[in-house]
Amino acid sequence: MTGILAASGPVIPDFGEASSCVQDNRLFCPDWVRDNWGPVLQPALLQHVKLVVIAVAIGFVLAFAAALVARRSTWFERPFDLFSALVYTIPSLALFQLLVPITGLTVTTVEVALVSYTLLILFRNILTGFRSVPADVLEAARGMGMGSFQVLRRVELPLALPAIMAGVRVATISTIALATVAAFVIPEGLGRPIFLALRQFFNTELIITAILAVALALVADGLLVLAQRALTPWTRIKAGS
């Protein structure tokens, strides 16, 4: 099927003990899932999480720094925006492959690509967040004697948080989906079991890995929503209550 994938072991345990469900390749075999959770599914899931966390973390740091610059210097925003939009248009598989000659069949390649995709979303949202701070609040803060750093820390950041969290949510979900393509480059992440299962048309594995990928995204989103609610209690207040 694909020549790029690293060679891998057999999907179905080769003890000749595969259950009848698996041998008949019925729609979904819970026993296979149970048996292979430890050796196959869980590692893939954890690798996937690791890939995503690193990508979003690095992307956030870069986008945040860029937004801080763009906040003050108006010339910066447009070029950065254009650059990010450009990268965003590049098909993910192509980007991965184009990076391989440069950074090899490594996690670095994957991370460079994933981080590039998160930059656009995070930059826009962080900048929007900063811009949404009302002018009178900023004036009051300065007038009260807060230095630039204090204004940023005590006023701008908290008030920008809703928009920033929205960006982190979108970036995280998108990266979880994109990281499946990493399996074209390195044998890690949830994309790998999908590949192997595609080779064999193995229904159970196809279904469980697809479910895992989507479930991971929904769980991550849910956790981030909770985090946002915890961090921004004032946004849930109805005015005048």
């Binding site: 009302p134 009178d136 009051a140 007038g143 009260m144 004697g145 005590r154 008030l159």
Partner: peptide, 18 residues
């Protein structure tokens, strides 16, 4: 330091919403 020693009140109040 100067500003911390001066009380400053503006029309839209500028209360910190958070």
């Amino acid at each position: 330091e100067l500003r911390r020693g001066i009380g400053y009140v503006i029309q839209q109040t500028g209360l910190f919403p958070h």
